[in-house]
């Protein structure tokens, strides 16, 4: 790079200064008139895609039985190993899900989960789904172990009974 001769300094004129100021203020006031794209979270929230992968739910059938059959394929598919399933056998006295098998223990470590959705994909009965909620902060690590009771969606039959009363 060749050295250039130093530029001759010119005294700024007042007119040019004012034009510059007006340009700047023009941008400022122009932005005020444009539509706002920031959101006042948490009062306001952005819309989410229908396929957003947030907090998990365990679904039920219309008759209130749990969909989960405790097959552990979600746990096998999980790349971070955050799902624990312990299965048990349905009996006539204690029918939890249709068929022979149900999940006695179903736990997800939400701190470890990466919300990839592989569990949902692996599930043969569409029991585990990832819902839209993403506000999962809490005050202690223990509270991030979501148990089956926390993950299960409410019993539709019980809900209807409560609505009726």
């Amino acid at each position: 790079m060749s050295a250039r001769p130093p530029k001759r300094r010119r005294t700024p004129s007042l007119g040019k200064e004012l034009v510059g100021l007006a340009k700047g203020l023009g941008t400022t006031f122009g932005e005020m008139l444009k539509p706002v794209i920031t959101v006042a979270y948490p009062e306001d929230k952005t819309p989410r895609s229908e396929r957003y992968r947030g907090r998990h739910y365990l679904r039920r059938y219309e008759n209130g039985l749990e969909r989960c059959i405790g097959c552990e394929l979600c746990a096998a598919a999980c790349p971070v190993g955050c799902i624990l399933v312990v299965a048990a056998e349905n009996t006539e006295q204690n029918r939890v899900s249709p068929g022979e098998r149900y999940a006695k223990v179903y736990e997800i470590n939400m701190l470890r989960c990466i919300f990839c959705g592989y569990c949902e994909e692996a599930c043969p009965v569409q029991a585990i789904v990832l819902g839209p909620e993403y506000e999962l902060s809490d005050t202690s690590r223990d509270k991030f172990i979501y148990t089956k009771e926390m993950l299960l969606e409410p019993d539709p039959i019980q809900l209807r009974a409560e609505d009726g009363s």
Binding site: C71, E72, A76, V86, A87, A88, E89, E100, R101
Partner: peptide, 9 residues
């Protein structure tokens, strides 16, 4: 052993 675990567990 019925339903106690899967082999890969």
């Amino acid at each position: 052993w019925r339903f106690q675990s899967r082999p890969w567990d």
